[in-house]
Design a binder for these strands. Sequence first.
DNA 1: TTGTAAGCGTTATCAC
DNA 2: GTGATAACGCTTACAA
Lengths: 329, 329
Amino acid sequence: MATIRDVAKHAGVSVATVSRVINETGYVHEDTRKKVETAIKELHYTPNEVARSLYKRKSRLIGLLLPDIANPFFPELARGVEDEMQENDFRIIFGNSDEKSSKEQEYIQTFVQNNVVGMIASTNDPDTHAYRKLNIPVVFLDRTMDNRPSVYSDGYEGGRLAAQEIAARGSRNIAVIQGPERVRPAMDRFRGAAETLKDLDIAFQVIQSSSFGIAEAGVWAKEVFRKVPDTDGVIASNDIVAAAVLHEALRLGKKVPEDVQIIGFDDIPLSSLLTPPLTTIRQPAYEMGRAAARLLIQLIEKEALDNHTIQMPVTFTERDTTRKAEKND
Amino acid sequence: MATIRDVAKHAGVSVATVSRVINETGYVHEDTRKKVETAIKELHYTPNEVARSLYKRKSRLIGLLLPDIANPFFPELARGVEDEMQENDFRIIFGNSDEKSSKEQEYIQTFVQNNVVGMIASTNDPDTHAYRKLNIPVVFLDRTMDNRPSVYSDGYEGGRLAAQEIAARGSRNIAVIQGPERVRPAMDRFRGAAETLKDLDIAFQVIQSSSFGIAEAGVWAKEVFRKVPDTDGVIASNDIVAAAVLHEALRLGKKVPEDVQIIGFDDIPLSSLLTPPLTTIRQPAYEMGRAAARLLIQLIEKEALDNHTIQMPVTFTERDTTRKAEKND
DNA sequence: TTGTAAGCGTTATCAC
DNA sequence: GTGATAACGCTTACAA
């Protein structure tokens, strides 16, 4: 690899001059600039980012910490983050936390060891010391805490919508699957749904689920029909679980949506490919990722405040696991 | 952030000594080691990886380049890579190429600028100059080239299996969806299926598809039933497309698998949640990711040869979009 | 407008 | 056993 010295020698100037043309900083004569530029071309020189990072104490790297990229909601988020970062010449160091604080700490540590300029995290404990003591900006994505920069969608409203719409479509004995307790958006959704159902005076039962994983989804689905065999509507904690519920309902010979209506959360890409296509509360995951990246960049460039939060809209996405609404216009 | 100098001062020794205890290199008296270790603890010192990387001209970072993390096959791969790397204290800089050579080049460049010690890539052109000139090991994953370190599964055999099994289950007018032409595994699958069908003397028609994306899958699915309305078996280019085909078949009122059998490729996590669950040719994506990471680590540590290739088995995963096999034992 | 040299935080060589 | 110190490749005062 050619270094800045090689370029300087080749162009017959000093390294300082080369640095000046690379960074477009300070004066440099047009002729010398040309010389330097051809030298750079000829030697295929590209600056060593590590040396830069060492001197400036900041890199063009950001850390992205997600619970589990294999969970279909997160790739969309990640893709949004990556696209926005890529367009702004930032690169991403990526890690999965599995919701484990130990892995999280480990990644946070290596992020700072690598001089990342910022971090995007989807964590259950945004308030821990580990984040507070960081002197780089952190944007919390999806999982979020008040008063910290974050991008999320309104889980409570999502839950409310789900309850309202499934009720409006005639379900009267509803099973609500409650997501993992320590996952804030899951709890928000649950609260939104439960409170709305209560207000509407509609009977519902709660099924606990302790994870969002594909592996366990089938278990929660079976649990639903074991605990509430005659349910005519289920509000699932996310689309994976909803898909599993749909699958189980069909397997039991129930008609969807005639016998049971099902509403999911997230609108992962495959939801529309299910049969029947899944009605769900959509979160704009890709856009959330992009928004988080944009916010982080603003924070890095000090163009945004430290408590900026962005709430994205959730939308009722009507497909065919719910019946047509009863007249309500 | 505390530096090695701070630690040295705090412990009343030289930086050299601190370095020795950190890296467990050279002699250091038990007592001084203790002193240094407590100093490290008290100051919460962690070595600056950037400085290390600069001096040693190698980091603990590896580059991972995938076509599109939002395509459900790749998160599994990525997760496998990440888990293995994480366990070996390597971190990942991640990028999506969108199969675009320009993005690919850009990432390769920034990977080397950041001193990555190795790279894992899923690319259509593993043979380009961009890779050949690299002086770090590269493992090609899924998309692969002979004579270069790679991990992939046997697409040809997969195609053969799909054809054989769908034929054994009675399909006689088969639609084979051919994946993108420049994607090698897709072509291998197609060849495997087409040649097998030819050998078996079974009629089939080919539907071209130019991408693996979720967005377009529905288009190819419609195409299938437009071009081959009376087909009784479709071999899809991957599970996404298979899911779309299943969806479309059901929408058209066809019975699956009675009227049409469907076989996919990959076995993405959601395939088993479809109704009916999708029969598919499974690739062990997660294990492939892990294997690629392991191989790369061996290459980095010079424990493996430069042309080491690992072929993973594909397996016929029988679920309910195919009929029970006709007696063939 | 350009060059010299210090410094970023490490590791490794060489004396002691 | 331990400590100075050069070096990794860059940026940026400061001088010229």
